[in-house]
């Protein structure tokens, strides 16, 4: 027992000493079409000049976990290097017929639905590997969705720091207050990833949170 305690003590010290030298694994999680890839693209474009993934009005555009290594984010004279991980949207249901509304062929819709289900499973599997997670929510939608609560509950259980972003504040229906009241224990940053609105506050919150790990 005593040996185990000593072993864990030194393991934690070494982990803390060398963690700073590794890139921080920053995950983007949330429901489909909340703007995870738009935000990841915005950050990548600002600091590397490249996009991270394609975006679309059709849900489940991101169906595989995507990575961007060595993204150095600079903010107010400070800098941090992140490994950015954009994940497929997590949901409890996927119906290929929903894609037909976007004039997609039945065969393509079925293929998209199948890939989307695999993407959800992949997203969940990656939860364990994150250092910091940004939950991207669509601020025009009801935030009391069980999937959001489930993701956050899992991150809390794994002691992974969480930042909640209320995206799409450029839209009239956006309601940041509702997101704030749904998650009173968290700092909520309202942004528009599409137009790059309020990203300064986002970077500040991200740096503050990343220091905790």
């Amino acid at each position: 027992m005593a040996i185990k305690i000593f072993k864990n003590f030194f393991k934690n010290i070494f982990a803390k000493l060398f963690r700073n030298k590794k890139d921080i694994k920053l995950g983007f999680y949330g429901p489909p079409n909340s703007g995870k890839t738009s935000l990841a693209n915005r950050i990548c474009k600002d600091f590397t000049g490249e996009d991270m993934g394609s975006i679309s009005k059709i849900p489940h555009e991101t169906r595989n976990v995507q990575f961007k290594e060595k993204v150095e984010i600079k903010y107010k004279g400070k800098s941090m290097i992140f490994k950015m991980i954009d994940t497929p949207g997590i949901t409890t249901k996927i119906d290929y017929e929903d894609f037909l509304k976007y004039k997609m062929k039945k065969k393509d819709a079925k293929k998209r639905a199948k890939e989307a289900t695999q993407g959800v499973v992949e997203s969940i599997k990656w939860l364990d590997d994150m250092d910091v997670v940004v939950i991207v929510l669509d601020s025009t939608q009801n935030p009391y969705n069980q999937v959001n609560i489930t993701i956050i509950g899992n991150l809390v259980a794994r002691k992974i720091p969480v930042l909640i972003v209320a995206n799409k504040t450029d839209l009239k229906k956006s309601n940041i207050k509702q997101v704030e009241s749904a998650f009173p224990e968290y700092d909520i940053v309202g942004i528009s990833a599409k137009y790059g609105k309020n990203l300064e506050e986002f970077y500040e919150a991200l740096f503050r949170l990343s220091k905790k790990i």
Binding site: T92, K93, T117, Q118, L127, T150
Partner: peptide, 23 residues
């Protein structure tokens, strides 16, 4: 809860006309 979501996703496409759950 996440395991339930994973298993649900695995069943879509394998169980006829099953499209997932509401929770």
């Amino acid at each position: 809860e996440t395991r339930l979501i994973e298993d649900t996703m695995a069943m879509i496409g394998h169980v006829k006309n099953f499209k997932g759950i509401e929770l």
